[in-house]
């Protein structure tokens, strides 16, 4: 359906914006390495089904490879910055102080409690869906600590947030058209979107009206 397509396109756009930002500017100011590492973990644990060869569709498979590949590539580009732009790298590390163990632990526990089946694949899937819902927190934390961000960085976060937000009408659509109600994705998707709500509000008030992103 249209919401699902738009959501996935928005997800693709967010990654393209991020890659272009890092490659063009040759700096990583304001981008959280921790969030990017969490996304590698999210995609690698979610798409383990690639190994089972029970593929849903060519579209899904290509997208999965794209998300795993680009998330690893982003982390590599950011690590390269250590040599090519050490000032920017140090500055990023100085601000990227969120303790991700407070996300990883609870997500692992939640995956053990809430899952569709007690198998390695399903537990990893559940872990990834919980982790995705909070993976942006180091990035938002960094943003709130520095109080401002480059416009491109905010476009990236907006596109990334929009992706999960658009999955919500997709789930409503699927409930009515297929009678499908996938509770875990829906709950974590709502949680994820809620975490972005503050950001969305400031983005709408400032960036969309041509003013820079600056926190009150």
């Amino acid at each position: 359906n249209i919401f699902r397509i738009l959501a996935d396109l928005s997800h693709l756009a967010s990654i393209v914006i991020l890659l272009e930002t890092i490659r063009k500017a040759r700096q990583i100011d304001g981008i959280s390495l921790k969030t990017q590492i969490l996304y590698v973990l999210v995609f690698c644990t979610r798409y383990l089904d690639l190994l089972t060869f029970r593929w849903t569709s060519l579209y899904n498979t290509l997208m999965k490879f794209f998300f795993i590949g680009t998330s690893v590539y982003v982390v590599k580009l950011m690590q390269d910055c250590k040599l090519t732009n050490p000032v920017s790298y140090k500055d990023m590390m100085f601000r990227d102080t969120f303790q991700i163990k407070y996300l990883l632990g609870p997500c692992a526990l939640l995956a053990l409690v809430f899952n569709y089946k007690f198998t390695v694949l399903e537990l990893c899937w559940s872990f990834s869906i919980w982790l995705e819902s909070v993976a942006i927190l180091p990035q938002l934390f960094m943003l709130s600590r520095s109080g401002k961000a480059s416009t491109l960085t905010t476009h990236y976060i907006f596109a990334l947030g929009l992706y999960r937000a658009l999955y919500i009408p997709n789930w409503i659509w699927r409930y009515y058209s297929e009678n499908r109600l996938e509770k875990l994705s829906i709950f974590t998707g709502l949680l994820q979107t809620a975490l972005y709500s503050d950001f969305f509000y400031i983005y709408y008030r400032k960036v969309m009206k041509g003013r820079g992103f600056e926190l009150p």
């Binding site: 699902r4 996935d8 997800h11 979610r46 089904d49 849903t56 569709s57 899904n60 997208m63 999965k64 998300f67 569709y116 089946k117 899937w125 999955y167 997709n170 996938e182 875990l184 994705s185």
Partner: peptide
């Protein structure tokens, strides 16, 4: 109540 769900979303 279905216990297994096909993960056809990304």
């Amino acid at each position: 109540e279905g216990t297994e769900v096909e993960h056809d979303e990304l």
